[in-house]
Design a protein around this nucleic acid. Sequence first.
DNA 1: AAATTTCTGATTTACGTACATCAAGAATTC
DNA 2: GAATTCTTGATGTACGTAAATCAGAAATTT
Lengths: 358, 358
Amino acid sequence: MRPTVHDIAAEAGVSLATVDRVLNRRPGVKAATRMRVEAAIAAIGFVRDMAAANLAKSRVYPFTFILPAGDNSFMRGLEQHVRDAMARPSADRVAISLVIVPPFDGAAVARALDAAISNEPAGIAVVAVDAPDVVDAARRVQASGIPLVTLVSDLGPSCRDHFAGIDNHAAGRTAGSLMRRFVGQERATIAVLAGSMLVRDHRDRLDGFRAALSDTCRVLPVLEGQDDPAATERLIANLLARHPDVAGIYSLGAGNRGLIAALQRHDRPRPRAVIAHELTPHTRAALEGDLIDAVLNQDAGHEVRSAIRVLKAKADGIPAVEAQERIRIDIFLKDNLPFADDADGMSLRPSGAASGAN
Amino acid sequence: MRPTVHDIAAEAGVSLATVDRVLNRRPGVKAATRMRVEAAIAAIGFVRDMAAANLAKSRVYPFTFILPAGDNSFMRGLEQHVRDAMARPSADRVAISLVIVPPFDGAAVARALDAAISNEPAGIAVVAVDAPDVVDAARRVQASGIPLVTLVSDLGPSCRDHFAGIDNHAAGRTAGSLMRRFVGQERATIAVLAGSMLVRDHRDRLDGFRAALSDTCRVLPVLEGQDDPAATERLIANLLARHPDVAGIYSLGAGNRGLIAALQRHDRPRPRAVIAHELTPHTRAALEGDLIDAVLNQDAGHEVRSAIRVLKAKADGIPAVEAQERIRIDIFLKDNLPFADDADGMSLRPSGAASGAN
DNA sequence: AAATTTCTGATTTACGTACATCAAGAATTC
DNA sequence: GAATTCTTGATGTACGTAAATCAGAAATTT
């Protein structure tokens, strides 16, 4: 049997109450006694039974999550993972309110943040839009003492406590390395498709991508599709028509649906290398159908759970271990695709254990 | 507040004892009453508080893990993850005994299995060697009613309950696809390095690799290094000397250390594409030093935790959800390397939360 | 109708921790 | 030396569930 608080008390020769005071950093214990208790804890290798502790505390953490609306597959997958977390308050004693705001609308995000503040949650997570009024609202959140985590898209270190997302510069570099290897020729022509250069993660990816390619390829000016499938499709069709020599396309954010549609309709051989971001039903199908060669992915489930862990730590005043909360950059080819209900959160998974527990 | 057993009792108009009988499938409840209680459970949306339930049960699951000895980095990483799980019995009420047996020694594994049986654990996990006496011992485990999970290397579906590892055929295909794209030329010459063709996972990877390349490349006969660094290094040095045209090397299992040493000592340009398996300190350093282009990885931490979940489910008579227990095939380039303490389990991590919780 | 079996209720203890209260001893201050 | 503060012990309740016991009530059999 593993040791309990009673064992500590016996080992240290003090009462349960004193052990409790030491364990929970309550005042009223002499330094010498405290050290004796701590020595006993170390000696018998006591570790708090968090299940029992949480049960006793019956503490709940009310968190607010702010996500963009729209039919972007990745965002809807993210929302599903948040709902999964909501549906299983058991494990973590978390009570999440979910707020959906119009996409790419800084003012709406700012309003949602202010509204959240007035509810006095134990923490807020937000998919940020990199706009001045959002930054201001974020500072108000911090000023009110509520921990704030940015999700997927960051705001900059000064106005949030933590960023739960991937290193987008590294993701861009990864895409660049793959692209360089996949096109396999010097001075190839590469096209880049983005949703909007106004979001920080897209800018970072582009920087990393360019850095990895350095001068080995010719990168065309960025095409911005504004996450509009029809517009994106036209952009790509146009590109393919006017640049028959394009050897690679990098889709660094929103717009995969339009890209895929254009590739599908294209009658000549497609560019040698097509690399996109985010594993969704669309990109998965495109991978399987050989329209795309590689997909870089950030696991939305991991990001949501990481955000919750960090918020809880901040709420408890425990510093989160940043190194443990890094989100990986996954690379998927058609050969190592995870099962459908695995990575994209788009499936109707009941709730429970789930792959994320991996 | 979420509903409790008391709420069920009130809703169904029965006593707590009856609710308990229904919840825990104890006998002595009339069918009509049982249905009333179940209706109430559904109506108020009760979900058992597993933390409280486990606390009350104070049930422990004694499991035995059997791992090979030797200085293979991946296996030592795996062991570290098992020790991590041992050091945190809190979360899952698991008590693991760890047995280390000589590597590549079927008889030793068989003996360890028989010894484990006599301890009557609630489950056994084993890194299997694909030998007849191991198969026999595995059948004895199953005959004694103890759930058996193979870890990393499989035995075949008929003599174990579950395999906690990657789809090695898919891993081989993934390596093949990458190789084809990385060498970027038709009819390139590719070398394959293995530890031993006697282990099943290595054979599977080779099959997948060949299938993905089909006839686009010329694959040289497999080099078997027997996981001996010095011998492997000689093999590779010899290969590079005799086949200056080798465009790619696929290291499909043990032997990375020797491979890396040979590449390091090689004075002419190395083959265009070098792909290896398992992210260890050695392969990580080689990736960072541009001696290797890509590393395929199975997350040992995920595998250990998955094995534990499956064993618990089997011990409880609950069928494990196989689809949720798939282990992913990670692809790492130098650009998307996770932090050092993240994937390889080789770091001196205390125990607790850890990245695996992602 | 009595005897039996089956079902249900009421109650208690336990799991390991958190937290509050009250009393009493020890150490400090004035 | 009395008054005050600090430190510790003793004790009880709570969290949500599991599990056991015993006593009735209801249904069944004889």
